[in-house]
C-alpha cells in the first residue's frame, strides 16, 4: 500500500509524472513501443500504426470536446484536410515528409480556426450542428475541386521517404508514426499544465466565470479549434502515408462519430482517456473480424453482418458509457489503480 507521496518542491508537484511509479510505467511503455516491432507480424504493425494515428486524432478531438466542451461532429473532415494536404504536396512537389505533415496540421488548423468562428455567437449543440455543416461543405469541396483534390477518384500518395529510406510498409512507417504520437500526446499533456489548458477547461466548466477572470472566450475557443484540427490534420497526413490513397470516401461522416465515441468511451477530458478510447475503438472492428472468421464454419456468411454489427456496437458503446460510466475507461482505470494502491485496504 502506498500511503501518500511527499514532495519537496512545487516543481515536483507540478511535474508531468508525479510519482516514481508513474515514471517507471512511462519508461516501460516507451520500451514496449520500441520493442513492439519485434513481433514481426505486418498485420500487427499495420494495426499499431492505425491505432497510433487514431490516438493522435482522438487526442485532438479530446482537447476540443473533452477539455474545452465544444462538441465537433466534423473531426474526420479535418483529418481529410490533412490527408489531402499531404497527398497534394508530396504528390505534386515531392516536398519532405515532415514538412508535409506540418503543412497538413497547419492547413487543418487554419480551416479549423475558420470553422470555430461561429463559436463566437453560438454554443453547445448549435455549434455541433455548425461543425456538421462545415464537414458537409468540406466534403463538397473534396468532391468538386478536382484540380487539387482529384475529384471523385481522389489522389494517390507517394511513399513516405525520409533520408532516402522508403517507408513503404507499416513496419517502417511505425518508426515515423510512433515518435510523432509520443511527442504529440506529451505535448497535449503539457498543455493542460499551463494557463492555456486551464483556460480551455474553464470555458468548458463555466464560461461566464471564465470571462470574469479575463479569459477571452473567443480567442481560446478558436485556439482550441485550431489545435484540435492540427492534431487531426497530422493524423490525417500520416493516414495518407499509410493507405497511400485519399478519396472523398476516405473519411465519411461516420468516422467523426468514431472519434467522438473514442473520446467518450475512453474518458473525455483526460489524455490517457483519449489513448484508451482510440486503442479500444480501433481494435473492436478487428476483434469483430476475428470473431466473424471464427464463426464461418457455423455461419458461412457471418462476414456480411460485420459492418452492421460494428455500427450497433459503436452506438451502444457511446450510449452505454454515457449512461453508466460517463468518465469512460480512464475512470475505470483510475479506480483499478486506486484499488491496488490502497491494497489490502478497501475504500
Amino acid at each position: 500500500m502506498r500511503v501518500g507521496t511527499a514532495k519537496q518542491s512545487y516543481a515536483a508537484d507540478e511535474g508531468l509524472f508525479k510519482t516514481d511509479t508513474q515514471k517507471v510505467w512511462f519508461g516501460l511503455l516507451l520500451a514496449a513501443l520500441v520493442l513492439f516491432p519485434l513481433n514481426g507480424s505486418s498485420y500487427w504493425m499495420f494495426l499499431a500504426v492505425l491505432v497510433m494515428i487514431n490516438v493522435i486524432s482522438t487526442t485532438g478531438l479530446n482537447i476540443l470536446t473533452g477539455y474545452t466542451g465544444q462538441v465537433s461532429l466534423g473531426h474526420a473532415a479535418f483529418m481529410a484536410v490533412g490527408a489531402y494536404t499531404v497527398a497534394f504536396f508530396d504528390g505534386r512537389f515531392g516536398t519532405p515528409v515532415l514538412l508535409n505533415l506540418v503543412l497538413a496540421g497547419a492547413v487543418a488548423a487554419g480551416i479549423g480556426y475558420l470553422v470555430g468562428l461561429p463559436s463566437l455567437r453560438i454554443k453547445g449543440l448549435y455549434l455541433a450542428i455548425a461543425t456538421l455543416a462545415a464537414a458537409v461543405i468540406l466534403g463538397f469541396i473534396f468532391l468538386n475541386w478536382t484540380p487539387v483534390t482529384g475529384g471523385l477518384r481522389g489522389l494517390n500518395v507517394p511513399t513516405a521517404t525520409i533520408a532516402g529510406i522508403e517507408l513503404a510498409t507499416p513496419d517502417r512507417l511505425y518508426w515515423l508514426v510512433m515518435p510523432i504520437t509520443v511527442v504529440m500526446v506529451l505535448a497535449a499533456k503539457n498543455l493542460f499544465r499551463t494557463r492555456v489548458g486551464r483556460a480551455f477547461i474553464a470555458i468548458r466548466d463555466r464560461d461566464i466565470s471564465a470571462e470574469i477572470i479575463g479569459i477571452s472566450l473567443f480567442k481560446y475557443k478558436l485556439m482550441s479549434f485550431a489545435i484540435s484540427s492540427f492534431y487531426a490534420g497530422v493524423a490525417g497526413g500520416l493516414w495518407a502515408y499509410l493507405f497511400r490513397v485519399v478519396t472523398p470516401e476516405s473519411f465519411p461522416a461516420l468516422a467523426s462519430i468514431f472519434f467522438l465515441a473514442a473520446v467518450i468511451v475512453g474518458g473525455a477530458g483526460t489524455i490517457v482517456g483519449g489513448i484508451f478510447g482510440a486503442v479500444f475503438m480501433t481494435l473492436i472492428p478487428e476483434f469483430l473480424k476475428l470473431s466473424a472468421t471464427a464463426l464461418v464454419p457455423w455461419f458461412p456468411d457471418a462476414s456480411i453482418y460485420l459492418a452492421p454489427v460494428r455500427n450497433i456496437i459503436f452506438g451502444l458503446l457511446i450510449i452505454g458509457f454515457l449512461i453508466f460510466e460517463p468518465m469512460g475507461l480512464a475512470e475505470m482505470w483510475r479506480r483499478t489503480r486506486r484499488y491496488f494502491a490502497l491494497w489490502p485496504f478497501r475504500t
Binding site: L254, N311, G315, L316
Partner: peptide
Amino acid sequence: FMVTIGLTSVL
C-alpha cells in the same frame, strides 16, 4: 445529444 448520435449508429 451524444446519446442520440450513438442511437443513429445503432439504428
